[in-house]
Design a protein around this nucleic acid. Structure first.
Length: 435
RNA sequence: GGAGAGUUGGCAGAGUGGUAAUGCACCGGACUCGAAAUCCGGCGAACCCAGUUAUCCUGGGCGCGCAGGUUCAAAUCCUGUACUCUCCUCCA
């Protein structure tokens, strides 16, 4: 959530900033107008309340002295009614203000490329070169099916489209990848956490998924009354439970920065992406992801964004997967982010780079929604800054390994870094199906 | 699933309708060569608004898990709700 004071005091600047994210300037005009009305009403209400408090003291005094106070009481009855009316107006205005405020995205950083969509993203660096093959590389979904390590048909039967079974060496590979990621993140100073996978609405609002992105997630309903949603939603990312861990808390400044990492499934309805990436591991309703979250002081988040991005990059480097880093344009970056670097891994069969991690500095945007604060060495309170990044998306990593490490005979070489995690297996070959 | 108890500053803890005690902690001062102890004073519930203004200050409002209600007035009474603890029941 943005700071209404900033919008109020730097209205033209705010309009310009948010215009690059598709927000109409009139929306902000409406917002400050509501804010002005609300504050005007507050001044009136507070003056009356001051009067009421004063007279109430006199009434109490009179009662103690067993004197009659019926005149004062009846006068206050009117004041009370007026206060009630004003407070009703204030609440209405505050609700309106919040409705708008909760739907405004974070201010983009000055360094963000300006543009409405991903075609304005800018490559900031590239690591290694796209893998070359002397033969036509197979898509990972064909490799997976041919090796009998991925089963889409059974998953569609048992669940639905966009679900998958990993089997045998495939299941082992997935497990190797996330264990490798967790170990590497731990070595880099991140504390491992196993969070809950169902969270309440306040948490979803705290990290910015709600109210805007309701249709992208799966919410649990009461079985006895399916029209009634329970206050529980399947997490679309571990970012939600990791950041909300600190919701409504004041953190000791010495504890910052806090670095946490978690493996979790991520559940996404993928509403609106019908027809896109219908095959393969790229776009699933359920996938595993290792997430990294940082909570830091307000003047340290830009340095921490670099640390976070480099940690995610180091994972790809250790797996020897070619990738590049892209700075997202103002129109493509996520709702909560001031700046986002996407890591895109090379996918040979598609002949292009695909997102495998998204590292964002959310500045104080989530902290203001979730009221995450810290106390500095002088005892003063500040909103913390929050950052999140994938480290990394597990299914997409498996897809990238299958495609980049495939051999002409249809087998897949195991990346050196994963061999210990694969119990010494160096190559995935088709075997007689065990199930 | 059933019954009961609870939720008040950083911590402990009083307050059953008249506007949040007290203790510990913290800050300042005195005493002391210095420290501890002691004494004196202060701060502190979190934020919002106004005036003034970048951080200060002054005034006001709000504030006792959360949301409503009753009342001139609510930590206190009423309703709903979340969470914690105890017991019963069930269960991996």
């Amino acid at each position: 959530m943005l700071d209404i004071k900033v919008i109020r005091e730097k209205l033209d600047w705010a309009k310009k900033k948010l215009a690059t994210r598709g927000i109409k300037p009139e929306t902000l005009d409406e917002l400050v107008e509501i804010d002005q009305k609300r504050r005007d009403a507050m001044v009136k209400s507070e003056q009356l309340k001051a009067k009421r408090n004063e007279v109430s003291k006199q009434i109490a005094e009179a009662k103690r002295n067993k004197q009659d106070a019926s005149d004062a009481i009846s006068a206050m009855r009117e004041v009370g009614a007026e206060i009630k009316k004003l407070d009703g107006e204030i609440k209405e205005l505050a609700d309106k203000q919040n409705y708008i405020l909760l739907r405004l995205p974070n201010f983009p950083d000055d360094s963000d490329p300006i543009g409405p969509d991903d075609s304005y993203n800018e490559e900031v660096r590239k690591w290694s070169e796209p893998t070359k093959f002397a033969f036509k590389p197979k898509a990972h979904w064909d490799l997976g099916t041919d090796l009998d390590i991925l089963d889409w048909d059974r998953a569609a039967k048992v669940s639905a489209a966009r679900f998958v079974y990993y089997k045998g060496a495939g299941a082992l590979l997935e497990r190797a990848v996330f264990n490798f990621f967790l170990d590497e993140n731990m070595k880099a100073g991140y504390t491992e956490v196993l969070p809950p996978y169902l969270v309440n609405d306040a948490s979803m609002q705290g990290t910015g998924q709600f109210p805007k992105f309701h249709e992208d997630v799966y919410t649990i309903v009461d079985n006895d009354d399916p029209d009634k949603p329970l206050d529980l939603t399947l997490i679309p990312t571990a970012e939600v439970p990791l950041v909300n861990y600190f919701r409504n808390e004041i953190i000791h400044g010495e504890k910052l920065p806090i670095n946490v990492t978690a493996l979790s499934p991520a559940f996404r309805s993928e509403a609106g992406s019908a027809g896109r990436d219908t095959r393969g591991l790229i776009r699933m309703h359920e996938f595993r992801k290792v997430e990294m979250v940082k909570i830091c002081k307000e003047d340290e988040s830009w340095k921490e964004l670099d640390n976070l991005t480099h940690q995610a990059e180091s994972l790809l480097q250790k797996l020897n997967l070619p990738y590049h880093v892209v700075a997202l344009s103002t129109g493509d970056a996520s709702f909560t982010s001031a700046k986002t670097y996407d890591l895109e891994v090379w996918m040979p069969a598609q002949d292009k780079y695909r997102e495998i991690s998204s590292c964002s500095n959310c500045t104080d945007f989530q902290a203001r929604r979730a009221q995450i604060r810290y106390r500095d060495e002088n005892g003063k309170l500040h909103l913390a800054h929050t950052l999140n990044g994938s480290g990394l998306a597990v299914g997409r990593t498996v897809a990238a390994i299958l495609e980049n490490y495939q051999n002409e005979d249809g087998t897949v070489t195991v990346p050196d870094a994963l061999v210990p995690y694969m119990h010494g297996m160096t190559k995935i070959t088709k075997e007689d199906s065990l199930i």
